[in-house]
Computed example of a mutant assay.
Amino acid sequence: MTMRRRVVLVRLISVIGMVAVLALQFGPNRHRMEDDLTRRSVRALTEAGGPPVEVAFTGRDGVLRAGDEATANRAREIVARLEGVRAVRTVVPPVSVPVRPPAPNLRVAITHGRVAITGTVPAGTGRALIRDALDGFAATDDRVTAGEVTGDGLAGIPGLLGALPRQSEDLTVELRDGALTLSGTAGSETEWVAVTAAARATGLPLVERLGVADLGARLADVPPLLFPDGSAWLSPQAQRNLWRTAGLLNAYPSASVRIEGHTDAFEAGDPLSEERATAVRDVLVSFGIDGDRLTTNGLAHDRPDRPDDTDDGRALNRRAELVVTGQLSP
């Protein structure tokens, strides 16, 4: 081995030796310093109170792990003031927020007494309660499915469905996003009151788009009230028609009606037409209708329904008609 190589080898051994000596000297000192900073930090944080904080030091640099930002910021201020601390870093683990299932949805549409029900409800008794509440409809198209949804808002739905009229022509109830919507047309004022009251009783936010069928149109479906020539006598058929009329008026308790009497061109005018209007009023009162809701008006032959040149035309002109003068307007 040459002299030069011997010199290089000696120097290399010397450097390695010095490194080993320094490692043996400073290694324990470093650990002691880190342990000391950790102990003093924990003690300071404990004395300050508050939630627990994890403390770790690498050299003179500290890492604090806290449950939230406020706790982390307060801990950093405390530890950073300690002697020997160079830097402090905080770590706040992300908060895991559980994913809540969506709310249920339900749509019940009644058309001509037939009900179609769609939507998603939680599995279990909820679906059975809804199905049972719709018992009594002529036909039910049940397309409700059980899914991963909450039961929010469903508690009062069976009561609402039980209040729905079984012979409704056009009525829809929809539950979506925790709110109820009523739409369509209730068959009468009493139906409208019952359905809206049941919807409000659920305690859910309510959008009311439900109208009320026109009483005048329903009265027009009742067969005409006709009288014999020269008379204000109501036949048994006419009284049966008035019984149907009384039923309609009971279904519209806020409505007021004017009873108009008419004659043909060959009868005595005003007195007879007024008698006919009064006769209709008296029968309705006997059927339980409040007389304060009824007014009369004899129009004689002022408004003929048919020409008087035939017997049939004259017969149709000897009549009484009911005109709605006031009705609930939702």
Results as ranks from 00 to 15, higher is better:
L316K: 11
G230N: 15
S231Y: 01
R86F: 09
T145M: 10
D308H: 00
A194T: 13
G113H: 12
H31Y: 14
R143P: 05
G162T: 13
G84K: 04
H112Y: 11
A220L: 07
N250G: 05
I157Q: 02
L82N: 05
A87H: 14
V280F: 03
T310A: 06
N73T: 14
G162K: 10
L9A: 11
R258D: 08
V97P: 00
T325Y: 07
A123S: 15
E77Y: 02
H301Q: 10
L64D: 01
L154M: 09
R131H: 14
L82E: 03
G187N: 06
S273A: 11
R86S: 14
V42E: 15
T125A: 12
G136M: 06
P228V: 11
T245Y: 02
T150S: 15
R131G: 14
A255P: 00
V285E: 11
A75N: 09
A70N: 13
T190Q: 07
V97T: 10
L182H: 03
R11C: 10
A255R: 01
R281T: 03
T46P: 01
I117Y: 03
L284S: 04
T38C: 02
L322V: 06
G27A: 12
L37Y: 02
M18R: 11
A315Q: 12
L316D: 14
L328R: 13
S188T: 10
V55S: 00
V323K: 10
G147V: 04
R39N: 08
